[in-house]
Nucleic acid binder design. Structure first.
Lengths: 273, 273
DNA sequence: CCGTTTTATTGATTTAAATCAACTAAACGG
DNA sequence: CCGTTTAGTTGATTTAAATCAATAAAACGG
């Protein structure tokens, strides 16, 4: 239940802490390698110059750094270009619920409360490892969608995919035990990293880069880090996984899938029709 | 953890059981009283004749009847015109997780697995009370959105709203105790019924029609009906609520909101920008 | 109206996971 | 490299909610 340390300065100034604008953005939208799975999937090649014009800036966010906090004025929406970001909410009792794991190509930051330019984010966003983000001005989203219906369709499709993941997390916390829930989460992240992070997956060892702490796992599925530890150790003893040094290896995929009631198809992104 | 009884006939025939097509639809889309909050909110008046042409049929679904089951081929997407529908998933262990409470004006049935015309629903849908539905052919959704970008924007906005509710349920099951979680759910449904169901709210008694069983409540937030009963009884003894005979009365709204950490603004539907 | 089924209620007991409490191992920052 | 912080590990104990069990009260369907 780690409470991210509030950065007093950044709150006072309503500025992003330690957020470096890339002087020389790593990619033009038109050649962006993650575009296929991102928001602009459906936007035709010849329109992408315009997309890039819409893009605000590309930022580099250091590991463990907060991108925004709940309540911050929502100037931007983001696509994660590279890295690993969590979206979360802190409750009155200090407990934290992780709402989403954002991987490269995912789109986030559009859930706000209030209306117009002063609307605030309903959740916080924080990098687990150093991350590169593409920011777009929130206020121009609507006009952009009106010009480019494919963008609105893409947004609806991504929303549907996020919804599917959220529902599976709900099923996990609501109706699965710790073992089942953890098995599902590990497999979900394993498959998503494999699909979305070019350098995150090592085929030789069947392992992924896995920057979550046991506390992060617990905050995602409603358990304490102590209990997460016990279950992970048990799974390691049984030869199902290995989870240490920020790497996750799946040793017995079949058994783990059975425990977690997981099938890759259930989390695959899909078209609306 | 009630398992809805499979209707053998309907499964074999892949037919909707007891679903009556209204010979004389109750409304033209152009005069539909719930249109303001539904999918076609943004569609200009002069385009609505065309919307209605897209509409497949209007159906009447009796209380407790299933509209579709997980895996059924997804021919239609729906707007609920009147009534109360739940979307749920049954796990391998027989437990049920309710994913969404659908109220008048809400749009559902677009979450499918697989692609193309053979795609199947990822969840089941069942009426809690007699419900009237507007059905639209799923396969024509994309072309319709391409012609009418407002529709895609509306869909993205509704998706965002559903996502907000789902995340709050996730927070409830993950990081709140039974009392907090139940308080939130009761208030959420109370406010939504008040906003979305013209005849569902009685101002004189501050009560709503509330067709959920205690098992439904439990299946929505990950508790057993026995424990839900104990918490509800305790809340009644404390004079916070009255929940009987399919009606819910909020007696001490302020205290209940504090317990549930609920504010009406957090579940209000909102525009994307 | 009456038998049947579903839903609600309450008590006794068990259990999965939380909490409390050390302690060890890794990662981090000069 | 070394002190400091953060993350992981393990055991003992408690607790919120599940399970088991038995009625009571409503709702339903002729």
């Amino acid at each position: 239940m780690a409470t991210p340390q509030p950065n007093e300065f950044s709150i006072l100034m309503n500025k992003k802490p330690n957020l470096q604008q890339c002087a020389d953005p790593q990619t033009e939208c038109i050649t962006c390698p993650i575009r296929k799975m991102a928001l602009f999937r459906g936007v035709p090649e010849e329109e992408l110059g315009w997309t890039q014009e819409f893009r605000d800036a590309q930022y580099l966010l250091p590991a463990r750094e907060s991108l925004y906090r709940e309540g911050d004025i929502a100037h931007s929406i983001y696509t994660l270009f590279d890295g690993w970001v969590i979206l979360f909410k802190i409750l009155d009792n200090g407990k934290r619920q992780i709402l989403r794991f954002v991987l490269p190509g995912d789109f986030f930051g559009f859930q706000v409360s209030g209306t117009g330019a002063g609307a605030g984010y309903t959740h916080g966003a924080q990098a687990l490892i150093e991350s590169t983000l593409c920011a777009f001005p929130r206020t121009r989203l609507r006009s952009m969608m009106e010009k480019q219906p494919q963008l609105a369709i893409g947004l609806a499709e991504m929303g549907m995919h996020d919804m599917t993941l959220c529902q599976h997390h709900l099923i996990g916390t609501g109706r699965k035990n710790a073992r089942e829930s953890i098995a599902f989460l590990l497999l979900e992240l394993f498959y998503r990293v494999r699909m979305q992070m070019q350098d995150g997956f090592d085929e030789a060892t069947n392992s992924i880069i896995f920057p979550l702490t046991q506390e992060d796992i617990g905050d995602a599925i409603g358990l304490t880090s102590v209990h997460v530890n016990r279950v992970l150790k048990e799974m390691e003893r049984e030869g199902l996984i290995r989870c240490q040094r920020k790497h996750l290896t799946i040793l017995d995929e079949e058994t783990l899938m059975e425990i977690g009631q997981f099938h890759p198809g259930m989390i695959a992104p899909r078209e609306l029709v």
